[in-house]
């Protein structure tokens, strides 16, 4: 498991986290290639179903990255997303997956550095958790 490279799906809001990721790009701030971004118009669009689907498909971690508290382009999509992430955590718990595998993050469009930094942190956290147990069972 020493060289386990997790696959992490990041649902990123077009108005903040996705822009922050582009910003990290223009600032050439490196972050782990493990993170794959799915662009959404608002984290309020992120469906628990898609979070589960990511895990079912083999993701080791998922995060939803929306705008800062109160900064949602659509008023409160980010707080709704945060509640759904909690719901997703409960579901994961119920089927025996670590709830830490899914997180909600907040950042603004200007936070290229924060995007890169959180990508590092989440990747490290998931690396410590080890592979998605579903995948492990699949392989064996």
């Amino acid at each position: 498991m020493g060289n386990f490279e997790p696959i992490i799906v990041a649902f990123c809001c077009h108005y903040c986290a996705y822009t922050a990721a582009d910003m990290a790009g223009s600032m050439r701030l490196s972050y782990p290639a493990n993170v794959k971004i799915v662009r959404v118009p608002c984290t309020g669009k992120v469906d628990v179903q898609h979070i589960l689907q990511a895990f079912q498909n083999g993701a080791d971690g998922v995060y939803v990255a929306g705008c800062l508290e109160g900064d949602c382009h659509f008023k409160n999509g980010n707080t709704k997303a945060a509640r759904r992430v909690i719901y997703a955590k409960k579901l994961l718990n119920e089927i025996g997956l670590e709830e830490e595998r899914v997180e909600m993050l907040l950042m603004s469009a200007g936070m290229g550095e924060r995007f890169a930094q959180t990508a590092f942190e989440i990747t490290e956290k998931i690396r410590k958790l080890g592979p998605n147990p579903i995948k492990k069972a699949k392989k064996s």
């Binding site: 179903q49 589960l52 689907q53 079912q56 119920e94 025996g96 069972a137 064996s140």
Partner: peptide
């Protein structure tokens, strides 16, 4: 949602 969760729970047990 339940469908995904159940399938995952099964997969976890191989």
């Amino acid at each position: 949602l339940l469908s995904s969760a159940l399938q995952m729970a099964f997969m976890k047990d191989g």
